[in-house]
């Protein structure tokens, strides 16, 4: 039994001209930390809005806590917490006033559920008289999470909670999510940061409104179809061109300090190295385990080929 379930959900805009979500199905188990991983325009926000009953699907069905997102929207609204991608608290109210407002709207009080938000709220409590609009990015994010939790939701929807936040705050935020998960809250989180995928129990890779794959991060990595190599030399830009022109190479993408490549079938790493030695005497090459980003690239290109 899934706590959040989508069956063949489709959503279009502008009279069908824009297909935001195309026949998407997946389920999130109770107490699971599930990640929707994909770039802007993948359909993540549309999915969140349908699950939080703010948008009606064109077709397909979806449920949260067993309630239908169209028929039982009132029940769902009582039960879920939603942190939208865009900061949506009242900028002119103070930290404390915002929290009190959301508690009151849900017929509860800060005191009643303080234990749930304590770890997060104590970090912003010294600024409780400050207006929300005057908070830093990291503090806004903590306040928004506190407000989304104050009525003790059963399911938490977090739409790109870490976008635009620096690496330290991102790390802290994921630690908070792990602690919330221990309280039994089901968490659906979206992110464009591929490295955050590893912190979820299961993930769905999504692009252009379609799911590329759903699995645990490790299983997605294990299913990468070919040996992957990292390669570098002194002239990285020239090396990338040489790799793309080489008929020994299947794919070549820049990955920061290294390029990641796969080889044509039956070509060995040694063969490629020898072929590059003359132009790039400092070339280094090693076999590596793929990351989620490698998998995303591979799967999105494979899907692209199917569509062509």
């Amino acid at each position: 039994m899934y706590d959040v379930e989508l069956n063949h959900i489709t959503k279009t805009y502008e009279n069908g001209a824009v297909q935001a979500v195309k026949d998407v199905s997946f389920g999130v188990k109770k107490g699971e930390l599930f990640g929707l991983i994909g770039p802007d325009g993948a359909g993540k926000t549309s999915i969140f809005r349908m699950l939080t009953t703010l948008l009606i699907p064109d077709s397909g069905t979806a449920s949260v806590n067993g309630f239908d997102v169209v028929e039982d929207f009132r029940e769902i609204r009582k039960r879920v917490g939603y942190m939208p991608g865009k900061f949506s608290l009242y900028q002119d109210l103070t930290v404390e006033e915002n929290l009190e407002f959301f508690a009151t709207v849900f017929n509860t009080s800060i005191e009643e559920n303080y234990d749930l938000i304590k770890d997060i709220y104590v970090q912003i409590e010294p600024f409780k008289k400050r207006r929300a609009g005057k908070l830093s990015g990291g503090m806004k994010q903590k306040l928004a999470l506190s407000c989304a939790l104050i009525h003790r939701p059963t399911v938490l929807f977090l739409d790109e909670p870490t976008t635009g936040v620096d690496a330290v705050s991102r790390k802290e935020f994921w630690e908070m999510l792990r602690r919330l998960k221990e309280q039994g809250i089901t968490i659906l989180v979206s992110t464009p940061y591929m490295d955050e995928a590893a912190l979820c129990e299961r993930i769905a890779l999504i692009q252009n409104g379609s799911i590329l794959s759903i699995n645990t991060p490790q299983e997605i990595i294990n299913s990468y179809p070919k040996p992957l190599y990292a390669i570098k030399a002194h002239k990285m830009s020239a090396l990338l061109h040489a790799l793309r022109d080489s008929n020994l190479v299947d794919s070549a993408f820049s990955f920061g300090e290294w390029h990641h490549i796969t080889l044509q079938d039956s070509v060995t790493a040694e063969q490629l190295k020898v072929s590059l030695q003359a132009e790039f005497p400092t070339v280094q090459m090693e076999a590596i385990e793929p990351g989620i980003e490698d998998c995303f690239i591979q799967q999105s290109l494979a899907q692209h080929e199917v569509e062509l």
Partner: peptide, 12 residues
Amino acid sequence: GGVDPVTRRQFW
């Protein structure tokens, strides 16, 4: 920020 991994690489 925000673009897919392939597009990001085209940008680089």
